[in-house]
């Protein structure tokens, strides 16, 4: 049986705990993504097969999800930088006086 390895790992012997964490995060977001796109795109259960429209919807959903996440992460980082800067400024004010 083949065990799926985290990307970048060369063998089972030496896997970095950080890699496992990243891989776990990836799997979690994969599951969330499946849940979201399935709920939003698949609602016809009169047939077993996935229709062209359903597949298109799910693939668009995936692509958009990734873009939305990217955008959110950009905005989040911007706030993070701002918060850090003001924390540093406050610390300097305290230490400088």
């Amino acid at each position: 049986m083949s065990v799926p390895l985290p990307p970048g790992a060369t063998g089972l012997e030496n896997i970095d705990p950080d890699q496992i964490k990243t891989f776990k995060d990836f799997l979690i977001s994969y599951n969330k993504l499946t849940e979201l796109c399935f709920t939003d795109c698949i609602s016809d259960f009169t047939s077993r097969s996935i229709k062209g429209k359903e597949e298109k919807c799910a693939l668009n959903c995936l692509e958009k999800f990734l873009k939305v996440n990217q955008r959110i992460s950009q905005r989040f980082q911007e706030f993070q930088v701002l918060a850090n800067e003001s924390a540093i400024a406050a610390a300097q004010k305290m230490g400088g006086s």
Binding site: C57, N60, C61, K64, F65, K67, V68, R71, I72, F79
Partner: peptide
């Protein structure tokens, strides 16, 4: 939360619409 609030569950297009982008920015803030 912001995905739920800003992205309607209709996926005709894989791009983020203008209004959706603005919504995301405000939602994060």
């Amino acid at each position: 939360a912001c995905h739920k609030k800003c992205i309607p569950p209709v996926y005709g297009d894989p791009e983020i619409a203008k209004g959706e982008a603005v919504c995301i920015d405000r939602c994060v803030a």
